[in-house]
């Protein structure tokens, strides 16, 4: 078990290093950092001095090591566009994106898992067919269109909910949260639903497929043959076994949630990391792009490590040694 977790951690470190390398290559090879940092009026000699100061003439591996070291120390460099420290720019945006992503994920789980279970247990029901058709349309509508439709209906036509921004937020120890004010929740609702719909359909279809697979296994048929009460059979036996693969995919989906928040944030002008990333692409603000990448990969890796731990908690085969 310890080995299993260590192995996963090792893989995570590899992924992080690879992404850091990507970010570094971006910084180093996409355009010349010196010309980006200095104005037209800077002399060639000054540019050279700066190049030397920043160590850009050092060997490649050395530069990468220093880049990674700086990152570990929390030094993410400066934005080309705003000249501010990238660390500050990103960290001030993290709460907005995380709150949006987590709420969206919770919506998708709260609706997706029960719907998946229902459609798996009643594969021929009318409601099942209706749900399946709806989700098929759901995965086919681009996220931004869902956002526009929600804005159009609830913002423009009905005027119930705000269509952009975060609404009221509360500052809690440097974390700017919209979860503690009605106004914040009102602003959060539409973006979170927009972001959650796509994940919801994926979750539902996955739970359904896995559950149907589990319902065909011998141990479920044997439990049927022993007359284990149906409710217990469905939830204690089938759903628990379904969750093992489902949890993995949900871990993978979290990356998707964060990524798609770019689109949602753009539609709702939600002041999160995604919006910052979009702006930095438009202005070719390489340092911000690079750090955003690293941060996203970090969240992804972290969530997947948690998933691995959950795995160990759920599945005794990983926890307890086989005696045979």
């Amino acid at each position: 078990m310890v080995y299993f977790i260590l192995k996963r951690m090792f893989q995570s470190v590899f992924v992080m290093l690879a992404v850091a390398f990507l970010a570094f290559s971006l910084f180093r090879f996409v355009g010349d950092p010196i010309t980006q940092m200095t104005g037209v009026e800077t002399s060639v000699a000054d540019q050279e001095r700066l190049r030397e100061e920043l160590g850009l003439n050092d060997p490649f591996v050395y530069q990468f090591a220093r880049f990674t070291g700086d990152m570990l120390k929390g030094d993410f460099g400066f934005s080309y566009r705003t000249r501010q420290p990238v660390a500050d720019m990103i960290s001030s945006r993290i709460p907005a994106t995380l709150e949006l992503g987590v709420v969206a994920l919770i919506i998708s789980l709260l609706v997706g898992v029960p719907a998946g279970v229902y459609t798996a247990l009643k594969p021929r029901g009318v409601l099942t067919q209706a749900i399946l058709m709806t989700t098929l349309v759901g995965v086919s509508i681009p996220t931004f269109v869902i956002g526009i439709m929600l804005i159009f209906i609830f913002g423009v036509q009905l005027g119930w909910l705000p269509t952009f921004g975060r609404g009221g937020t509360v500052q809690i120890g440097g974390w700017e949260s919209s979860l503690f004010m009605i106004d914040g929740w009102r602003a959060l609702l539409l973006p979170a639903i927009t972001l959650g719909v796509y994940q919801l359909t994926l979750t539902m279809r996955l739970v359904r497929a896995e559950m149907m697979e589990v319902m065909r296994t011998d141990y479920i048929r044997f439990a049927m043959a022993r007359g284990v009460p149906m409710r217990r059979l469905h939830y204690k036996h089938a759903l628990a076994n379904t969750m093992v693969p489902v949890i993995t995919i949900i871990g993978l989906q979290f990356g998707g949630v964060i990524a798609f928040s770019i689109v949602t944030e753009s539609v709702f002008q939600w002041p999160g990391m995604g919006l910052l990333f979009l702006e930095s692409i438009r202005f070719v603000d390489i340092p911000v792009m690079g750090v955003y990448l690293v941060v996203i990969a970090f969240f992804f890796v972290l969530v997947n490590l948690i998933v691995d731990l959950l795995y160990v908690a759920i599945d005794p085969r990983l926890r307890i040694k086989d005696v045979s």
Binding site: T217, I220, R226, I314
Partner: peptide, 18 residues
């Protein structure tokens, strides 16, 4: 279970692993 029960072929797969 109460009056009729059943034994399956493959003991590897007939028991709930969790």
């Amino acid at each position: 279970g109460d009056r009729i029960s059943m034994i399956f072929q493959d003991p590897q797969t007939s028991l709930n692993p969790l």
